[in-house]
Amino acid sequence: MIKKEKFLPALVSGFSLAVISIVPIIQVATCCLFAPLAGMIGFNMYYLQVKNREGFKLKNSDGFHIGILIGIISGFFESIFQTLLIMVSKENPVYDSIILIQKYLPDMYIPETIWNISKEIDEKRFSLILTTTIFFNVFIVNSIFATIGSMLSISSLRKKLS
């Protein structure tokens, strides 16, 4: 069961992960270490809260819960941040993506739907499809990597304690 003790560390690290993910320079610097690091920090925060409780035992499932929670929370916040960034900027990530793919795969057929999304962003600076896609994309990736991070944290804590 997801308890408050798990939700708060996941909220802090998930939110931080979402904030850091939209800062370009930091993103280039830390590359693939973001989400696992958030998972590790999240689990350590949880561990610090509950380690003195009677009968507490490190369980793999706790790491799994925290990892998934971080994925959901960071997905939620990052999709909002990215949407806001698109609204206030002149950038069109869908168009940039089309250009990049065409650079390496010039013969590829670009579906009409994609051009429509790109047009919608140019005109309204918002696309519900894009926001939803960002949410699911971030949720899937961060859930996997934050879970790996929190699992690594469990393993290292066990090593330390033994």
Partner: peptide, 14 residues
């Protein structure tokens, strides 16, 4: 196209 853009964004996240 859908597959390649999904994968590009997927790996772009990490």
């Amino acid at each position: 196209f859908y597959m390649i853009s999904f994968l590009k964004n997927f790996y772009g996240q990490i």
